[in-house]
Amino acid sequence: SSGGSSILDRAVIEHNLLSASKLYNNITFEELGALLEIPAAKAEKIASQMITEGRMNGFIDQIDGIVHFETR
């Protein structure tokens, strides 16, 4: 797709992000992006959206560029 990722790509990214949230206590956007094979800024945006929508527990430290995952 030309304008970003398809629905399937997005679903795969979100699935992998949720998997990462179970493996890590926290991770930088750079590391997360590398893990998900997407730019760091996109990793931040998707993580932020999932947390806001209540689909993933955690919070974002924008100063240090880190996602902190919280286990249920």
Rank of each mutant, 00 (worst) to 15 (best):
D61P: 01
I7F: 13
A41Y: 11
F69Y: 02
M56K: 01
G4W: 03
G54K: 07
L35I: 09
T28I: 02
D9G: 06
V67Y: 02
T28N: 05
S2A: 12
A34L: 12
G4V: 12
F59T: 07
Q49C: 07
I7R: 10
L18F: 06
A11Y: 09
H68V: 09
T52G: 09
E30F: 09
S19P: 00
E30N: 07
G3I: 11
T71P: 12
E14F: 05
S48E: 09
P39D: 10
V12T: 13
S5F: 05
A34N: 09
N57H: 12
I60V: 09
I38K: 00
N57W: 10
T71L: 08
Q62P: 14
N16V: 11
L35T: 02
N26K: 15
E53L: 06
F59S: 08
E31M: 10
I46T: 03
S5A: 13
Y24N: 03
D61C: 10
I63N: 09
I7S: 12
G33K: 02
F29I: 08
G33N: 01
V67T: 02
I51V: 05
I27F: 05
Y24Q: 03
I66C: 06
A34C: 08
E53Y: 03
S1A: 12
N26P: 06
R55W: 05
Q62A: 11
N25D: 09
E31S: 07
E44D: 03
P39Y: 04
S19T: 14
A40Q: 06
E70F: 14
I7H: 11
E31R: 08
D9T: 06
M50F: 04
I7D: 14
E31Q: 10
I60S: 02
L23K: 11
I66Y: 07
S5I: 12
S48T: 11
D64Q: 15
H68S: 06
G33A: 10
E37P: 01
E14C: 05
D64P: 06
A43T: 03
S1D: 13
L32P: 00
S19K: 15
K22C: 09
G33L: 02
Y24F: 11
E31L: 11
E44N: 07
S6K: 10
N25Y: 10
S19G: 08
L35F: 08
D64W: 13
R10H: 10
A41Q: 10
I46L: 08
L32S: 00
L8Y: 13
E44W: 14
N57Y: 12
A41D: 13
T71D: 10
S5D: 14
N16C: 12
I63M: 08
T52H: 12
Q49D: 13
E53Q: 08
S19N: 13
L32M: 03
G58N: 01
N16Y: 13
L35M: 07
Y24R: 06
S2E: 14
F29A: 02
P39T: 12
Q49W: 06
H15M: 14
E14A: 04
K45P: 02
N16K: 15
K42G: 07
L23D: 05
N57A: 12
L32T: 00
D61G: 04
F69R: 01
A11V: 10
N57T: 10
I46P: 00
K22A: 07
K42S: 14
I27R: 04
A47P: 00
S21R: 03
S19A: 15
F29G: 01
R72P: 12
T28H: 03
H15L: 13
M56C: 03
I51R: 01
E31A: 13
N26Y: 15
L17Y: 01
D64S: 15
E30D: 08
S48I: 11
S48N: 09
D61H: 07
L17H: 01
V67W: 02
E44A: 15
F69N: 01
T71H: 13
G3P: 11
L17R: 02
K22W: 08
L36P: 00
H68M: 06
G4L: 07
T71Q: 13
I38D: 00
I63R: 10
I27H: 01
T52L: 14
H15E: 13
L8I: 12
I51N: 01
E14S: 03
A47T: 09
I51F: 08
S5G: 12
R72C: 11
N26G: 06
G54N: 06
G3E: 12
E53W: 04
M50W: 03
K45M: 15
K22E: 06
S1N: 13
K42W: 15
I63H: 09
K45Y: 13
L17D: 01
M50H: 01
E30S: 08
S5N: 12
A20E: 02
S19Q: 14
K42N: 10
T28A: 04
T52N: 14
F29E: 00
H68D: 04
I51W: 03
E14Y: 06
F29R: 02
V67F: 05
R72Y: 12
A34E: 09
Q62L: 14
F29Q: 00
K22D: 04
Q49A: 09
Q49V: 07
I13C: 04
Q49F: 05
S6C: 13
S5H: 10
N26E: 09
I46S: 02
N26S: 15
I7C: 11
F69I: 03
G65S: 06
